[in-house]
């Protein structure tokens, strides 16, 4: 167990991080992600308020739709990334644990009178069920048509008798869902889903933080504080697609300005030979000159690669560019590769 944003979180379960990663890719992984925060926004003017604070287009969202977005400061720095659910009469916004308090304060501070902003994190539990057989398992547990849901939508109903908001979303590159439900039902649903999987012969296991990280990393998803952060502009990290430049939003000018001039650094994936690259390791050009830093790096169990994400100058960002990553004082061969290393199941 390790402290993470004020929670005691399992880095791995006894299964081990590599096997946990592989189980999620081949069957079902259950993720206890109660640390994630949920902010609810409602009241007259809530739609325009949410639209103005977040980068994604949201005003076209219909009840049940779910969408990825960034949250920027005025300078265009990424203060968080979010999943936004449009529900009847309210917005349900999922935020990262470490940014929850700052996000909540930011929403509160900017909210016009009449708009209600509530932190729902304490009474809400969150579990992700991910993998090629996740929807099948949830379908067996639900009193409504989970398999009939399309990706990036949500629905409400009961799972094993527990009232849930189910989003067909996730952070692994696999199909699956994220469940929101009353915190007091956490044990019942967690154990109930594992028991149901065992009973129906569906391989399923609890997955710790280490495998959560390698799953999202392989699938090319960002982790706030690494590929995106307050000192990183979305254009540098390749997230202009998450910004709706046809509307006004906080930080828009910084995004359009950088898109116009072109960024001085870009996020790239590196395939490294001869060691495990990790966050903070130096990236060099073939002459030994420092050209960037790794923001994340690890062994990727499905693609069987040692890989890193790093920011480098645009002229070094082309796939095939030979670079070095310094591991324990020694420069090791690295080559720029196309991201993601693992194409998410729902994009194939």
């Amino acid at each position: 167990m390790a402290p993470f944003a004020g929670y005691e979180m399992p880095i791995t379960y006894p299964t081990g991080a590599v096997e946990e990663h592989l189980i999620t890719r081949r069957s079902v992984g259950l993720f206890d992600i109660d640390h994630m925060g949920q902010i609810e926004v409602s009241g007259p003017g809530a739609d325009d308020f949410v639209s103005r604070l977040v980068t994604a287009k949201v005003l076209d969202m219909k009840d049940g739709d779910a969408r990825y977005s960034l949250l920027l400061d005025e300078k265009g720095g990424v203060t968080d990334d979010l999943f936004i659910y449009r529900l009847p009469g309210r917005w349900w916004i999922v935020v990262n644990a470490s940014n929850r308090e700052a996000d909540f304060a930011w929403f509160r501070k900017n909210a016009p009178s009449g708009v209600k902003v509530e932190d729902r994190s304490e009474d809400t539990y969150m579990i992700a069920v991910q993998g090629p057989r996740a929807i099948e398992l949830l379908g067996l547990a639900a009193d409504f048509d989970v398999p009939g849901m399309i990706r990036f939508t949500s629905a409400e109903g009961k799972l094993l008798g527990v009232p849930c908001l189910v989003g067909r979303t996730g952070y692994t590159g696999e199909d699956g869902a994220e469940l929101f439900f009353p915190a007091r039902e956490a044990r019942k649903l967690w154990e109930g889903l594992l028991d149901l999987a065992a009973e129906k012969g569906i391989e399923a296991a609890p997955i710790g933080l280490a495998a959560r990280d390698s799953l999202r990393f392989e699938a090319g998803m960002p982790l706030h504080g690494h590929e995106i952060s307050p000192s990183i502009n979305p254009v540098e990290a390749g997230f202009k697609w998450a910004c709706d430049l046809e509307k006004d939003f906080v930080g828009k000018k910084a995004v359009t300005d950088l898109a116009a001039t072109g960024p001085s650094r870009k996020l790239v994936g590196l395939d490294v030979t001869g060691g495990v690259p990790r966050e903070g390791y130096e990236v060099q050009d073939p002459d030994g000159k420092t050209v960037g830093l790794c923001v994340a790096g690890m062994f990727c169990p499905t693609v069987k690669k040692y890989a890193a994400n790093a920011f480098v100058a645009p002229e070094l960002s082309k796939a095939g560019t030979a670079l070095k990553v310094v591991i324990h004082g020694k420069p090791k061969d690295a080559v720029v590769v196309k991201r993601p290393l693992y194409v998410p199941a729902y994009r194939r």
Binding site: I11, T12, E19, Y306
Partner: peptide, 8 residues
């Protein structure tokens, strides 16, 4: 240490 992924 947990799962070993590389030895130099």
């Amino acid at each position: 240490l947990g799962d070993i992924v590389f030895v130099e």
